[in-house]
Design a protein around this nucleic acid. Structure first.
Length: 373
DNA sequence: AATCCGGGGCC
DNA sequence: GGCCCAGGATT
């Protein structure tokens, strides 16, 4: 296999056989002992790949173990209530992944008799499975010769071949995919893909690549030219806007906490949280929170939690109400307007039952900080 | 092609 | 405070 000329493959990498041997040998000796590297179960590997999307490995491990313990088979996941799945996902972020994971499990049961297909084209039809994840499952679980391109692979290959194209654009990524495709060996394709990513994660790192211990240092064109730190070239991203998020933590006389469930689509879709609004200040958010929850809010004293907390008191119910203000990054919107939070239901929840609700990590933080329970 | 989706670790 | 992370869906 060869890289097409536009890929500018250096002469030293014309023959991939030695590169395969170098990197695979290195991988065999230096790979991290990750839980999903002890199985060939396509379901477990799929789960790990979805969890690892845009998420650090160290973060994923405890979630992966808990999730697999709760849902040991694709069948058990398919049959589980979505709320249970979201609860197990709670804190991991990108919650649409959890909904798509649940849907894909049902697809596998319905369309494939509970066994993951081997062909990347078939895997690609599962919800939440893109080109990367399809290639990962096929190569790692089934030994299919398919390639993967993630952030690590982009970095390693753009350096190895000294490709200066912008890797946020489609053309640059397309070139990396072409190279990755051409490089996957017939033997051990899954290990090769993981080795490429492992190298990017542990040696060929974004800031300070450790070229001195890299198994590919002698054939790396970026290294030879001394431009490895400037690669991959990434066009600057648009800066997100910021505003404050204000949460209302209300408890009734029995100590139950008022929670609201966000609408299914959009930010934190389907998750529960203390009723919250985006506002410039806590006073601005109070009327909206009051209207939303039916509570009459009255400003009380101030305490410090995270940024700071306003303790309020309620007139009709003798309950403590506190307002937590936090500066939170939010997405850029076209008109610069604040995100509107929509809820589809409210509920008073006993504090002992809070762990059973799918919630964001921030919502748990707010509840832990508030004087409840 | 551009934008959105979380949360955390690191510099 | 900015960057990055085992990406994919949506428009």
């Amino acid at each position: 296999m060869r890289v097409r000329k536009s890929a500018a493959a250096p002469a030293s990498v014309r023959d991939f056989a030695s590169v395969h041997a170098s990197l695979l040998d290195w991988y065999d000796e230096h790979r991290r002992d990750l839980p999903w590297r002890q199985t060939s179960d396509a379901y477990a590997i799929w789960l790990s790949e979805v969890m690892c999307q845009q998420t650090r490995i160290e973060t994923v491990i405890p979630y992966y173990l808990r999730f697999l313990s709760e849902f040991p088979t694709v069948m058990s996941l398919a049959e589980a209530p979505l709320d249970r799945v979201l609860t197990m996902w709670s804190g991991l972020g990108y919650y649409r992944r959890a909904r798509m994971l649940h849907g894909a499990a049902q697809q596998v049961v319905a369309d494939h008799g509970g066994r993951f297909p081997e062909a990347p084209g078939e895997l690609r039809k599962l919800s939440g499975v893109g080109q990367y994840t399809a290639g990962a499952i096929a190569s790692i679980a089934y030994g299919v010769r398919a390639s993967v391109v993630d952030g690590n692979v982009v970095r390693v290959l753009s350096r190895l071949f000294a490709i200066g194209q912008d890797m946020r654009g489609g053309a640059g990524l397309q070139q990396i995919w072409a190279i990755a495709d051409s490089m996957v060996p017939t033997e051990r394709p899954g290990d090769w893909n993981q080795a490429l990513m492992e190298l990017g994660a542990t040696v060929c790192t974004p800031q300070s690549p450790q070229c001195g211990i890299c198994p590919l240092q002698s054939v790396c064109e970026g290294r030879r030219r001394g431009i490895e730190r400037d690669l991959p070239r990434l066009a600057p991203k648009a800066k997100p806007k910021r505003w404050r998020r204000v949460a209302l933590v209300a408890t009734d006389e029995r100590g139950a906490v008022l929670l609201a469930r966000r609408v299914r689509d959009g930010l934190f879709g389907g998750l529960w949280e203390p009723p919250s609004v985006d506002a410039d200040g806590p006073e601005e958010g109070m009327p909206r929170l009051g209207a939303m929850t039916g509570l009459t809010l009255k400003k009380g004293r101030c305490a410090h939690v995270g940024s700071f907390v306003h303790i309020l008191s309620h007139r009709r119910i003798e309950a403590d109400v506190c307002l937590v203000k936090d500066v939170k990054r939010s997405a850029t919107t076209q008109n610069g307007a604040k995100n509107s939070t929509e809820y589809d239901r409210f509920e008073w929840v006993d504090t002992a039952m809070l762990s059973e609700r799918p919630m964001t990590k921030f919502a748990r933080k707010v509840l832990n900080a508030a004087p409840i329970g």
